[in-house]
Design a protein around this nucleic acid. Structure first.
Lengths: 238, 238
DNA sequence: GTCTATTTGTGCGAGTCCGCACGGATGATT
DNA sequence: AATCATCCGTGCGGACTCGCACAAATAGAC
């Protein structure tokens, strides 16, 4: 299921790389390389976004939260297959979510206003709308997973989605960070991770998780992994 | 928080009614009145949708599910404030979700191809994309609620969202139906409903729930109700 | 008015996850 | 080498929800 990168321009962001050359050129003139350090806040709730980001490495997290921030949970995961700032594609410059860099990396960014102009190109708009659709399917299945899966399986699902978006098999995150994303106790993550380790699916050391057996993880998650990924592939893989 | 209808054309679907007259006229020529009986299946997973629906009464449910259908849960709720078939607005004619009529009513429908043509009008597309954005926020907060709230509060949230979309204060649904939407046991719904009744928030009889104290329900849900509603209001209430 | 299907009320043991708490391990700093 | 901040492992009682199962109540059909 893991879709390997095949950028034509070596830029590494698949949403850009798989575009027709004319579109990609249009975008390139407005793109700027940026670093994405872990913890960077890309969007704040209800504040106008100034740039949209196209990661080439690292993972960005879209977090739904209550207004006071009392409850937080990851509603979307974005890597080199996607972009931040989907609400700009949908015609508004803000949303009640927060967006942060979950795993440090790098990418490109573009001023919001430039994207708004570029979106007048039908072909570009269509492509990015397809991405918004895929992202909303991902969110819906996160709702499904949150309601129906045990913690072990939710963790496995998260690791799979993360694995899809990184190079290699190593995820550099603390249990504490993961617990926020999944909306559970830190200790719960520790225990669940031991279960996955016990099954030989991953190996974990301080601040690092190595994926050993991807298929085993998929099996553990059951039907709750794969649907959003298939929808992405259907619409956005040329 | 409950937004009352104020259709200019008496048609009762707010997404249509609050449009500039020119757009609404464009739409009207392609709209057809339809009945929406409870249980009607409007969209099947991964099948092309033939019509999109604009309810005027009743409630439609967007259900995320595993491919085999083993796990199901409501990912979106649509009433007279919205439409089914958001994926058409996003440029594709199918999605892995199922869409059904949750509470019977009526509305308008339009052939998918007609909508695709109409979407070339910038103003219409912008408006419907704003709706897609609001819907995706709703889904994200369902993910949040599923992860963080107790059953009582999730039930209260669902009742509030439903109340927003119906006339009057009576929801005609069985516990069994509700349990599917929330992804929990039927007996769990029964017990939680008793709790809400005990607090004087609702009154329930066979197949019917009457909302008594809306504010009390909102209080019970805490910050997990209201964010998607505010986003809808911001973008789609003229 | 009786029968029947559906819906609702209730109970019980088991499993999961919570909040809280603390000790040990690891890696960076000085 | 000692210190310190961070991260990880573990334990305990309690709350919540599960799966299962069955009785009672309601509404509609005959």
């Amino acid at each position: 299921m893991k879709v390997e990168e095949k950028g034509t321009r070596g830029d590494g962001n698949q949403l850009l790389a798989r575009m027709p050359a004319a579109l990609a050129d249009l975008m390139l003139t407005h793109l700027e390389s940026v670093d994405l350090p872990q913890g960077m806040i890309i969007e704040q709730p209800d504040e106008a976004v100034e740039h949209v980001y196209f990661p080439t490495r690292g993972v960005i997290s879209i977090v739904a939260m209550t207004p006071e921030g009392g409850a937080r949970i990851e509603a979307g995961l974005v890597g080199r297959e996607g972009m931040s700032g989907s609400m700009v594609v949908l015609g508004t410059d803000r949303s009640p979510h927060q967006t942060t860099v979950q795993i440090g990396g790098a990418g490109y960014r573009m001023e919001t206003s430039r994207l708004q102009e570029a979106l007048q190109q039908d072909a570009l708009r269509e492509r990015l709308l397809h991405y918004c659709h895929a992202l909303s399917i991902q969110t819906a299945h996160t709702a499904l997973a949150n309601a129906k899966l045990k913690l072990d399986a939710r963790l496995a699902r998260w690791l799979l989605m993360c694995h899809d978006r990184i190079e290699g098999d190593e995820v550099t995150l603390t249990h504490d960070f993961l617990s926020t994303m999944l909306g559970v106790r830190r200790a719960g993550v520790t225990v669940s991770l031991h279960i996955l380790e016990g099954q030989g699916l991953v190996r974990a050391t301080r601040g690092l998780i190595r994926i050993i057996d991807r298929e085993g993880l998929e099996e553990m998650v059951g039907g709750c992994y794969g649907v959003p990924e298939a929808e992405y592939t259907r619409l956005l893989t040329a």
